[in-house]
Simulated assay, not measured.
Amino acid sequence: MNEWSANIENSYKINSKPLEIYFFIDPFCSDCWSLSPLLKKLQLEYGDYFTIKYVLCGQLSALNCKSKPDIPHFLQNKKCQEWKGISLQFSFTDEDAFTPHLAAISIKAAELQGKNAGIRFIQRLQELFFIENANITDINILRQCAKYVGLDLEEFTKDIYSTSAARAFQCDLKISAEMEVTEMPAMVFFNENIEDEGLKITGIYSYSIYVQILTEILEEYPKPAEIPPLEMFLKENPINETNDLALIYDKPVKHIERQMKKLQLQQKAKKIPAQSGNFWQYDPS
């Protein structure tokens, strides 16, 4: 059994969900940011059927590009390639303290405090970058981000400059290269049979496509869970674009606008104008 198969098998021993999704992203790429609401909706409705693992890609030049691309209307299915034994060398020093690599490594440092902590950190880091135009290559901004999502700040700061975080980032780059992930975002779906190849798709597609893929791999129609009421969702995801909430709740944009304006009148939410659209921040305090 090769190392890749062993990792997949160990993952299934830990959880009993029938599918695992490897989500390859550059967190600072606008395409990956655009996929966030689709992924949230998929997890809300079908999270009982899969676990998700975030894998960072190394194309961090996207830090210089914030334009929101058009969503393609076609689907490319590719079978995952076998590992080729490629070995990437990566090193990190204090001299990199104001580089894109620091932002990427900070994500791996956050993940050392747990999978969910890492996901919360990625989401907040993207908000800082895409909505607030913050300099997420600054260690002080990264520390603020860690504090915002409830991480142990002392551990986080220590881990950013640790070999553990650097090696975790190196491992992600190696997986991306050996899986031949050259476009982002990319998702690879694995089922319980570790002998089967994963199904890889790249780009952003309609929500129904992702549900169709789950159905085909499961060989049955998965039963969607009920999406929580809006305020309950906002408590866990306080910053959202109007269009994203409309997608998640299958409601017209005007309906969501009315709901958020009601919360605004109740002083539970405020509107945040941004280049990429109007966002709402939920704050009931």
Results as ranks from 00 to 15, higher is better:
218 L>G: 03
195 E>D: 14
206 S>G: 12
106 S>K: 07
19 L>G: 02
49 Y>T: 01
226 E>H: 05
13 K>L: 09
260 M>L: 15
43 Q>P: 00
251 K>S: 14
47 G>I: 02
7 N>E: 15
53 K>N: 15
222 P>K: 08
225 A>P: 00
11 S>R: 08
57 C>I: 06
57 C>D: 08
208 S>A: 08
138 D>S: 12
244 D>I: 01
81 Q>G: 04
100 P>F: 10
129 F>R: 02
181 V>F: 03
121 F>K: 10
202 T>D: 12
17 K>W: 09
277 G>P: 13
196 D>Q: 07
197 E>V: 00
158 K>Q: 13
224 P>K: 06
237 N>W: 14
139 I>L: 08
2 N>V: 02
15 N>E: 09
78 K>Q: 13
10 N>G: 14
282 Y>Q: 02
165 A>Y: 07
6 A>W: 06
40 K>E: 13
33 W>A: 01
257 E>C: 02
162 S>N: 09
34 S>V: 03
264 Q>E: 15
73 H>I: 03
259 Q>L: 13
79 K>G: 05
240 N>G: 02
62 A>I: 00
219 E>Y: 01
122 I>N: 08
243 N>I: 03
99 T>S: 15
179 M>R: 15
122 I>E: 12
214 L>W: 09
271 K>P: 04
44 L>K: 05
47 G>Q: 08
263 L>G: 01
265 L>R: 14
155 E>D: 07
59 Q>W: 08
39 L>F: 11
122 I>Q: 12
132 E>M: 13
150 G>Q: 06
119 I>T: 05
115 K>R: 05
216 E>H: 06
90 F>G: 06
234 L>S: 11
48 D>Y: 12
30 S>E: 05
186 A>R: 06
277 G>K: 12
213 I>M: 04
226 E>I: 08
119 I>P: 00
55 V>D: 11
258 R>E: 10
222 P>H: 13
179 M>F: 13
111 E>Y: 12
250 D>Y: 08
267 Q>V: 02
124 R>V: 06
81 Q>I: 04
83 W>C: 04
72 P>M: 03
70 D>L: 11
117 A>C: 02
146 A>S: 07
248 I>A: 10
95 E>F: 13
150 G>I: 05
264 Q>A: 15
197 E>P: 01
95 E>N: 13
64 N>Y: 08
245 L>N: 07
65 C>E: 09
254 K>H: 11
275 Q>L: 13
280 W>D: 00
198 G>D: 10
164 S>W: 06
254 K>F: 14
249 Y>D: 01
113 Q>T: 11
147 K>S: 09
131 I>Q: 03
185 P>N: 14
32 C>G: 03
235 K>Y: 10
227 I>H: 09
40 K>Q: 07
205 Y>H: 15
255 H>Q: 14
43 Q>A: 10
35 L>C: 04
182 T>V: 15
15 N>Y: 15
174 K>W: 02
279 F>Q: 01
147 K>I: 14
253 V>M: 08
25 I>F: 12
31 D>Y: 15
189 F>E: 07
189 F>L: 10
174 K>I: 05
282 Y>P: 03
11 S>E: 09
230 L>D: 07
131 I>S: 10
11 S>C: 02
76 Q>D: 15
61 S>V: 00
78 K>E: 11
143 R>M: 08
284 P>R: 04
176 S>N: 10
39 L>Q: 11
130 F>K: 02
204 I>E: 07
169 F>E: 01
165 A>F: 02
